[in-house]
Simulated assay, not measured.
Amino acid sequence: MKLYYAPGACSLADHIALIETGERFDVEKVDLKAKRTESGADFTAINPKGYVPALGLEDGTVLTENIAVLSYLADRAGSLLPDNGMRRWRVLETTAFVSTEVHKNFKPFFSPDADDKRKAEARDILDKRFAYLNERLGDRDYIVEDEMSIADCYLFVTLRWAKEVAKISLPARLDAYYARLKERPSIRKAMETEGIA
């Protein structure tokens, strides 16, 4: 497998998940503005959508979109997403919430033409989403029950954006959760490979 990523982008979640699963894989950095891979390939020939993540599979097919890639990796490795039961659905529910209600609201912080008003509106929404997740986390180490899941991989990335890009103060439990996850070996290794702090 090969993960196409941009440093610190949402593909970091997939990078973390790949390390967590213990699967063998390669990575290739993508310049999202130029739409070129580090080896010089036209990234739009790999993923016509032009954004990461993109996961090249052994049979030559390419899988895109975070929820699909994360679920595929978890099912393939038999970890990070339970086979069945309510915990499986809670992990998928939380992963979808991170994708649709948290990730999308960072758009103004990555858009060069976004004004302060749009950023302030996004901050207000994100504050509410993080307050909900803070309550949902409670006193657990992970966002869904007591084991690392794909939801944690994805949530970590958005919390990093909150701190590093949007300068949002996280609620106390969520902030402590972020600090704990940042010390996890898979996360440290993924960030080191991508050259981000």
Rank of each mutant, 00 (worst) to 15 (best):
1 M>L: 14
3 L>G: 03
3 L>Q: 03
6 A>H: 11
9 A>Y: 02
10 C>R: 00
12 L>M: 10
15 H>D: 04
21 T>K: 07
22 G>S: 10
24 R>V: 15
25 F>G: 07
28 E>M: 05
29 K>F: 07
35 K>T: 05
37 T>P: 03
38 E>W: 08
42 D>Y: 06
50 G>Q: 03
54 A>H: 01
58 E>T: 11
62 V>C: 03
63 L>H: 02
68 A>T: 12
69 V>P: 00
71 S>K: 01
75 D>K: 13
77 A>D: 01
78 G>R: 08
78 G>H: 05
78 G>W: 04
79 S>C: 13
85 G>C: 03
86 M>R: 15
86 M>W: 13
87 R>K: 15
91 V>T: 01
93 E>C: 07
96 A>N: 14
98 V>S: 02
105 N>Y: 13
111 S>V: 08
122 A>P: 01
122 A>R: 02
123 R>C: 12
123 R>K: 15
125 I>A: 14
127 D>Y: 14
128 K>I: 15
133 L>F: 07
134 N>L: 06
139 D>E: 13
139 D>P: 03
141 D>E: 14
143 I>G: 00
144 V>C: 09
146 D>R: 06
147 E>H: 13
147 E>L: 09
150 I>S: 01
154 Y>M: 09
155 L>V: 02
162 A>C: 04
163 K>Y: 09
167 K>D: 13
167 K>I: 12
167 K>W: 11
169 S>K: 13
170 L>P: 00
171 P>A: 07
171 P>C: 06
172 A>K: 13
176 A>I: 06
176 A>Q: 10
179 A>C: 11
180 R>G: 11
183 E>Y: 10
186 S>L: 10
188 R>G: 09
191 M>F: 05
191 M>S: 04
192 E>H: 11
193 T>H: 12
194 E>T: 05
195 G>R: 02
197 A>S: 12
197 A>N: 12
